[in-house]
């Protein structure tokens, strides 16, 4: 957990995410979605190509999120992080759904 005075927002480190779906399944409000696909990666000297999960889309619907932080705790790869940003209003319901780009931008 964070020692920040606010809960802020949950940010994503896309490179750390393996699309394992643990956060999606643990989320009590069903606010996280993940789309991914599997790619075969051939490596020099390897007998067979390796299956690697590639993250296509990661969204958090902050209209549903209750900031419980279970996803942050549950992530086995520490790909989710609390950040102090709090100013992300939207004028439509869909605008509260943040995708990979915004979730990663909050890391900076």
């Amino acid at each position: 957990m964070t020692s920040l005075p606010t809960r802020g927002v949950i940010a994503l480190i896309p490179d750390a995410c393996t699309s394992c779906m643990v956060c999606v399944q643990e989320c009590p409000t069903w606010c996280i979605t993940i789309d991914s696909h599997v790619e075969q990666v051939s490596e020099e000297g390897a007998r067979r190509p390796r299956s690697v999960s590639v993250l296509d889309r990661f969204t958090i619907d902050f209209g549903l999120c209750m900031y419980c932080g279970i996803c942050v705790d549950a992530c086995p790869f520490d790909a989710l992080e609390w950040r102090p940003q709090h100013d992300y209003p939207a004028d439509t319901r869909a605008g509260l759904v943040q995708g990979t780009d915004q979730l990663a931008a909050w890391l900076r």
Binding site: C20, M21, V24, Q25, E26, W30, T33, D35, V38, S53
Partner: peptide, 19 residues
């Protein structure tokens, strides 16, 4: 349930129920 999407396009033996 968003958690029903199969990770790595594998079929689970038993479908998992959402919380």
């Amino acid at each position: 349930w968003p958690g029903a999407a199969e990770a790595q396009e594998r079929k689970r033996r038993r479908p998992q129920l959402p919380p």
